[in-house]
Amino acid sequence: MSRTTVLPVTRRATIVGAAVVLAVVALSGCAGTSGSAPEARQSPSKSQSSQSSQSSSPSSAERTPAPTKTTDAAAAATDLTFEDGAALSASTLPAFGLEVSALDGWEQTGEDSSVGSREYTKSDGSVATITQQRITDLDPSMGDRAATEQLFTAAGMPAEQLEEQLLPTMTGGTAQFLSIAGHTTDGSWSATVARAFAKPGAALIVKVQTPSQETLRPDLHDILVHAQVVLT
């Protein structure tokens, strides 16, 4: 029987993994559907996102009813754009609801509660690190996109090469993230997908490192379609 595991959230500043040399791997569409799992895919542009939200977003009456143990804003967030972050409560805790049993071929090989991360390893040599943290120095008024870009630039990753990605939420929608991928300084291939939540001061990060470029896309797909975003 599968179970949903929510990782601990720690209070400390974060950086996003090791720097890539060049963002040469296009992650657009790298995660297709997997069985009945929601699809993780590239996000539309800002203008497209704005038009889409006006034309297709469900009304508040149509959204999933609020669970008794979550805030109204968190419960209503079927789709979580960067702009939607401004409506979150400062006490909201973003997290990944990972279906451990769904990670076929992956084995948990580490956990570091001091940084709020868990490590998973695959037989092909790939390593995935899923992290969720509190960040103490985010300006809550800066907006989630700017805060997310700041995560990457602080780690030496060029903001102009970031791609938008959509990760599934636990409520059946999608959440906007930014990503970068490329050849790392140690000869492996790496992709980092992250989202900062400026108002509550938190970050969700997925990093996948693989021994070859050929395995980066499918192994990243495995993780992204099951690392569902939940707000509590």
Score class of each variant (00 low, 15 high):
Ser2Val: 06
Thr4Val: 05
Leu7Val: 01
Leu7Phe: 00
Leu7Ile: 03
Leu7Tyr: 04
Pro8Ile: 00
Val9Tyr: 05
Val9Thr: 12
Arg11Cys: 13
Ala13His: 11
Ile15Leu: 15
Ile15Cys: 12
Val16Ala: 04
Val16Arg: 06
Gly17Met: 07
Ala18Ser: 08
Val21Phe: 13
Val24Ser: 10
Ser28Asp: 06
Cys30Thr: 05
Ala31Trp: 02
Ser34Phe: 04
Pro38Glu: 04
Glu39Leu: 12
Glu39Thr: 15
Gln42Arg: 12
Pro44Asp: 13
Pro44Val: 00
Ser45Cys: 02
Ser47Pro: 08
Ser47Thr: 03
Gln48Gly: 11
Gln48Glu: 12
Gln51Gly: 10
Gln54Met: 11
Ser56Thr: 10
Pro58Phe: 04
Ser59Arg: 02
Ser59Ile: 06
Ser59Lys: 07
Glu62Gln: 12
Glu62Phe: 11
Glu62Tyr: 12
Thr64Ile: 09
Pro65Lys: 07
Ala66Gln: 14
Pro67Gly: 01
Lys69Asn: 14
Thr71Asp: 09
Ala73Met: 09
Ala73Asn: 08
Ala74Phe: 02
Ala74Lys: 01
Ala77Thr: 03
Ala77Asn: 05
Asp79Tyr: 06
Thr81Ala: 09
Glu83Asp: 06
Asp84Gln: 02
Gly85Ile: 00
Ala86Lys: 13
Ser91Gln: 10
Thr92Val: 10
Thr92Tyr: 00
Phe96Ile: 05
Phe96Ser: 07
Phe96Val: 07
Val100His: 00
Ala102Phe: 03
Leu103Asp: 09
Trp106Ser: 05
Trp106Leu: 00
Glu107Thr: 14
Glu111Phe: 07
Ser113Met: 11
Val115Glu: 08
Gly116Ile: 14
Ser117Thr: 14
Arg118Thr: 15
Ser126Arg: 01
Ala128His: 05
Ala128Ser: 12
Ala128Lys: 01
Thr129Ala: 01
Ile130Arg: 13
Thr131Phe: 07
Thr131Gly: 08
Gln132Lys: 08
Asp137Ser: 12
Leu138Ile: 14
Leu138Thr: 13
Asp139Pro: 01
Asp139Gly: 05
Pro140Cys: 09
Met142Cys: 09
Asp144Ala: 08
Arg145Pro: 09
Arg145Phe: 09
Ala146Glu: 15
Thr148Met: 04
Gln150Glu: 13
Leu151Thr: 07
Phe152Arg: 14
Phe152Lys: 10
Phe152Leu: 13
Thr153Gly: 05
Gln161Lys: 15
Gln161Phe: 14
Leu162Asn: 15
Leu162Phe: 10
Glu163Gln: 15
Thr171Gly: 06
Gly173His: 00
Thr174Lys: 13
Gln176His: 04
Phe177His: 00
Phe177Trp: 00
Gly182Trp: 04
Gly182Ala: 02
Thr184Arg: 10
Thr185Lys: 06
Asp186Thr: 03
Asp186Gly: 04
Trp189Gln: 03
Ser190Tyr: 04
Ala191Cys: 03
Val193Met: 01
Val193Thr: 04
Val193Trp: 02
Ala194Met: 00
Pro200Asn: 02
Pro200Arg: 04
Gly201Ile: 01
Leu204Phe: 02
Ile205Ser: 02
Lys207Val: 12
Val208Ala: 00
Gln209Trp: 01
Gln213Phe: 01
Glu214Leu: 05
Glu214Asp: 11
Thr215Gln: 10
Leu216Ser: 04
Leu216Ile: 00
Arg217Met: 14
Arg217Cys: 15
Arg217Leu: 14
Asp219Lys: 12
His221Gln: 13
Asp222Leu: 11
Leu224Glu: 07
Val225Gly: 03
Val225Ala: 03
His226Gly: 07
Ala227Lys: 06
Val230Pro: 07
Thr232Arg: 13
